[in-house]
Amino acid sequence: MIERQIELRVNGQSFTILVKPQDLLVDVLRDQLGFTGTKKGCGTGECGACTILLDGKPVNSCLMPALRARNKDIITIEGLGTPEHLHPLQQAFIENAAVQCGFCAPGMLLSAKALLDANSHPTETEIRQAISGNLCRCTGYAKIVQAVKAAAQAMTQGDGNP
C-alpha cells in the first residue's frame, strides 16, 4: 500500500510523516512520533485510554485513521503541562491521589480538560458524565471526581497555571 505524506499538528508542533491508510492515529502518535503518554487499551473505543483532544474535543484515537487527523489540532497528554509547570488538573490529581497505576490517567486528564474548558463549574454528575468514557480499574473514581472538582476550584480562583 502506498504511503502518503501528511502533516499532523500535535501539541502546537507540526510533524511531516509518512502514513498508510490503515495506520491508526494512536499508533502513529505512539510509534512514529513518540507521544507514548497516549495509551492503547482495548483498541475498540470502550476504555478511553487512547483519548486525545481533536480540535478541543475528546475522541478515541484507536478508532481514527491517522489520515483523518490531517488539518486538525491534536492535543496529547504531553501537551497538557510540563514537569516544571503542571496543569492544575495534573496538580489536583497528585494532591488528591487520583492516580494509582496511571494507565487511565492521560485519557482521564484530557477528558477532564475538555470538560473544564467548556464548563468551569461542573457538578459531580457532569464530571461523572464527562469521564464516563474513561475506565479506571484502580481508584473507584471517587478520588478522580474529587480531583476534577479541586482543579475546577483552583482554576476559577486563578490559582495555578492553566
Binding site: 473505543g45 483519548t51 481514527m64 477528558s111 475538555a114 458524565q129 468514557g133 474513561n134
Partner: peptide, 9 residues
C-alpha cells in the same frame, strides 16, 4: 449513545 468520545465521532 456511548460516552463523550463516541458522541464526538
Amino acid at each position: 449513545i456511548g460516552a463523550v468520545q463516541t458522541r464526538n465521532m
